[in-house]
Amino acid sequence: MRERLFPGDRLAAYVVLGALGLVTVLPLLYMIVLALQSDAEVQSGDPVLWPAELQWSNFTRLFEAAPFGRFFVNSFVMAGAITVAHLIFDPLVGYVFAKMDFPGKRIAFVAVLSTLMVPFFVRMLPIYAIFANLGWIDSYQGLIVPFLMDAYGIFLMRQFIKPLPDELIEAARVDGAGEFRIYLRVILPQCKPAMAVLGLFTFVFQWNEFLWPLIATSRTEMRTLPIGLTLFNQEYFTQWNLTAAGALLLFVPTALFFVITQKFLVEGIALSGLK
């Protein structure tokens, strides 16, 4: 049952939604306008809503001004590898907690869940110190390893696997299938929808990750896109057109994610309770 605020409330609702929708979307659209302006236009002190001539060349100038191609690749490697790791580990651990009985299970599960409460700042400094000793600063493994799996993903997969019928597992066991084979052939194929949600969300959140890549890299060639863009802006702070072009590059996965997940986006976020 949908509660209606008051009779004839539709108009008022659309006015409020329209206004807030514009406040949400206009700044992002302005980013596109900004990216297509000439240097003179962005520096004029008289902001324009439509550039006199669309400067598509800003997108090529961007790659000449700083190694944005490299930033993009670094971000892709980091977010991609972490996503793959989550898709390997989160369902496996989730399956153990959902379907297996063993001594120590309760403690192990509580231990995993307790990591949800730990601010990243608390493990950041020691991990940084260890990685510095290992020579992992400015390396892909340094960017990736702290995020190989997490309690959100494990919990999500456990919740998804728990209601699956035990009979499937029993039947496979009677047929003499090994435990790992059961997981791989019986459980995993049923998890595809949950894994799709997990994979998409993991990729976008890791693609946007800011704090750790800022600390774990110092050489320009190893910066990820969010960091590279921020530092580029600090150095070329009058070149707002190029910064906006870089921001659009950074926005590409978010836009794709949005198009793919549009139908289940709201449910997906409510379900996973992601950060």
């Binding site: 949908r2 509660e3 939604l17 992002l28 921020t230 978010t254 986006l265 709201v266």
Partner: peptide, 28 residues
């Protein structure tokens, strides 16, 4: 939460900034 035509679209649109990199949000 009301039965409004187009509410799915509005719900998703309003979520875009949450899924956008903090670098974009901050610099913009």
């Amino acid at each position: 939460n009301q039965a409004l035509p187009g509410r799915t679209l509005f719900r998703s649109l309003l979520l875009i900034p949450y899924l956008t990199s903090v670098s974009i949000v901050g610099l913009l």
